[in-house]
Computed example of a mutant assay.
Amino acid sequence: MFKKDAICKGEINVKIGYRTIKTAIGTPVAISIAQLLGVTNFVSAGILTILCIQPSRKRSFLSAWHRFLACIIASIYSVVFFELIGYSPIVVGIMLAVFIPTTVFLKIAPGITTSSVIILNLYSSSYINFSFLMDQFLLIIVGIGTGLLLNLYMPSLDKQLKSHQKKLEGNFQVILYEIALYIRDKNKTWDGKEITECEELLEEATELVERDLENHLFRSKHAYRDYFKMRARQFELLQRMLPLVTRLPNQDYISEKIAQFFEELSESVHPENTAILFLEELVELQKEFNTEELPTSREEFETRANLYRLLHEIEDYLRIKRKYKKSDIKTRASV
């Protein structure tokens, strides 16, 4: 029933993301500002900006703070080590051996790379005075500040989340329909690719939701997060149903009714919630199942047992949707 493709075809798509665009804009802007301010090593401002571009506002603020604090500590360490011990590569190594554990202890390790730029600038100067320290401090402000300002703009992820929602629901429809076909006539032509696609879509959607939450610092709830959590739980149940379906040795009157039920479900997968209607229909189906004559052979017994478990799994599937949101019984049936 579930065959996997032996050959996977793919395409290489070159996309320019918003982080790339921000980097391309921010780097020359930071360099230009630093150059206009007469900052020494003004090119380093561009490097600092590149290192500060992040995928979300929350990570941007944290990154900016970590990098700023690490740069300040790096400046202090540079004064102590270079001025007291000397300007040599060995001293740079010794200082880094002390500086890096310090950042790890203070939980600002992401700032190591950025602060290394400042350390090397101070080392290359062969002298450190107050004026040069202020010069590097201004470089830090320009570089990190430019990256932080650019990161204040984050594109909406609603379009991507909506796309993942539609694709996921489409795959659910296929899975439910293929289950119906197999129960009805043991159709084995399905390759099961929708199973893998669902796993990938749920993983990608979860990442998108978390990133969107990080872009809205004062939002604690997210409608899509609840939705994809609900679908993830339903998908687990669908995966548990598949082995049951493959172990159905024959078909009878009740199995045809169950196949029809799954087919109806496949036509009713979308965001609205009227799962209560399908639960009511399922109750009637279970009653009919219980009134059937007892099996007389091992094969019939196995069929009934697997069908019975299948009914319980699909009941859990529907109950998950019912808990997800208020019932929409005035709209088209949805699972």
Rank of each mutant, 00 (worst) to 15 (best):
Y18R: 08
Q136P: 08
S56A: 11
T27K: 08
S60K: 03
V43R: 05
K9W: 05
H66C: 11
S131L: 15
T20W: 14
V79W: 07
S44E: 08
I85D: 06
S115R: 01
L106A: 14
E83N: 12
F137C: 14
I90G: 12
K107Y: 07
I119V: 12
G17M: 12
F61K: 04
L37R: 03
S131P: 13
S32L: 10
I141D: 00
S60R: 00
K22C: 08
I53S: 04
S44A: 12
F81G: 04
C8H: 10
R67K: 13
S78L: 08
F82H: 00
R59H: 07
F82T: 02
A70I: 02
E83T: 15
M95D: 04
I141C: 09
T49G: 09
D5W: 09
I108F: 00
T113C: 07
I47V: 15
W65K: 14
S124M: 06
S44N: 03
N121E: 05
V98A: 15
Q54K: 11
I47S: 15
L139C: 06
F81P: 05
S115Q: 05
Y18L: 13
Y127V: 11
K58V: 05
Y127P: 02
Y123V: 10
V92N: 06
R59A: 12
T23Y: 06
Q35D: 13
I53T: 00
A34M: 00
K107R: 15
I31G: 05
S63K: 04
L120K: 05
I108S: 00
I112H: 01
I141G: 07
G26T: 05
A30D: 03
I100V: 15
R59V: 11
I112R: 03
I12L: 04
P101E: 10
G10V: 02
A109E: 14
K15E: 09
K107W: 04
T113Y: 01
Y127N: 13
L69Q: 11
N129C: 13
G10L: 03
Y87S: 12
G17S: 15
T20I: 14
P28C: 06
I112S: 02
V14Y: 11
N121F: 02
F130T: 15
T27W: 01
L37M: 00
I16E: 02
A64N: 09
L122C: 08
I140F: 03
Q136R: 07
L122Q: 00
E83M: 10
F82N: 00
S125D: 09
F105N: 14
T20C: 14
I141L: 11
I31H: 02
R57W: 03
L62I: 13
D5C: 07
S124V: 07
Y77V: 09
L36A: 10
A6Y: 14
L36P: 07
T23F: 10
C71K: 03
I16C: 10
V80I: 14
L96Y: 10
L122P: 04
Y127Q: 12
